[in-house]
Amino acid sequence: MTERQLPAIPPGMHRPGIARGLVSITGQRYLLELLVRKELRVRYQASFLGLAWSYVKPGVQFVVFYFVMGQFLQMDRALPPFAVYLFSGIVLINLFSEVLGNATRSVVQNGALVNKIFLPRQLFPVSMVWVALVHFVPQLLVLLVGSLIVGWRPDVMGIVAAVLAILIVLTLALGLGLAFGAVNVAYRDIENIVDLILMVAIWFSPVLYSLDMVRQTFGEGSIMLALYQANPLTIAVELFHRAFWYPAANPADRADALMTNVMDRGVIALVVCAIVLVLGDRLFTRLSRNFAQEL
């Protein structure tokens, strides 16, 4: 029977087996929840610490970087309170790294499901976003407590900056994760490329040093500075600094010249990341037709 001879599809329904992009996961909350639970259960199976590992990795990173950058290179004097400055950047970069890294591997790791049943393939990378958020929330709570201890008090613009930073990171990581995850099915070298990207991500954003140091090194108005500031991760980290570090470091003056345009750049970065998400979804949808054969 040809497609023209098939019966008409009732309103509100669609023909099964047709890839429709991220929109296809709407109404698939139950399947998404099952994938998230499966991922968490497999990850912490036979683990003594379980979810507590979400504290261990950022904790070790923080201790190492704090002593190397804060004590040995005396960044704690240049950026007080450096502990909040450092940890706020680590938390955000870890969120990006976990979403992108796991989303890239998500389709390959779920190859058995891809070959057995049809379900929207986008569920695999999207589920990794929720898994990353499960780990991100405890770290964010630690950051909030630490910020309060050093004198941080929430303000409206700071809350908006934090939300905007999280949206930028999640949108960018998911967009790239969809694209890399789709290509990774055919070329497993992509996993190694993504690992390299994640390895240098923390060094190419103002987590261990200040943006002012970059400005002094490259010079105001230089192309290198413009490229550095165009990095969405740079903008997201600066937004998180605006939310948690800046009010504690400058309680009397929250409108520093370095922060006046960070919100505008944040909105532009979110739009750019949304475009990356759309392009990544389209590439994923196109390549997903061959996933079962290649896996």
Rank of each mutant, 00 (worst) to 15 (best):
R41S: 09
R286H: 14
R254D: 07
R77F: 00
L196A: 12
F244Y: 13
G146A: 12
K116Y: 03
R289N: 08
A248F: 06
T104H: 03
D212C: 00
W203F: 15
E294V: 09
A165W: 02
L283I: 14
P138N: 09
A243N: 07
V68G: 08
L170C: 08
N250A: 06
V271Q: 04
P232R: 08
I9P: 02
K38N: 10
V145D: 04
I168D: 03
M213P: 00
I275R: 02
L277V: 04
G89H: 11
V64D: 04
I202D: 03
N192A: 05
L172Q: 10
L167N: 01
F48D: 00
S205W: 08
F118T: 13
R153Q: 15
V63L: 15
L95Q: 13
A112E: 14
F65D: 01
F67T: 13
I193G: 09
I202K: 03
R188A: 08
L140G: 13
V271W: 08
V107G: 01
G158Y: 09
V42M: 09
D281F: 01
D281P: 00
P7G: 10
A8N: 11
V150W: 14
P138L: 09
G27E: 04
S88I: 11
T234E: 02
E220N: 13
P206V: 12
L141R: 09
L198Y: 00
G59V: 03
L113V: 12
V68M: 08
F87S: 03
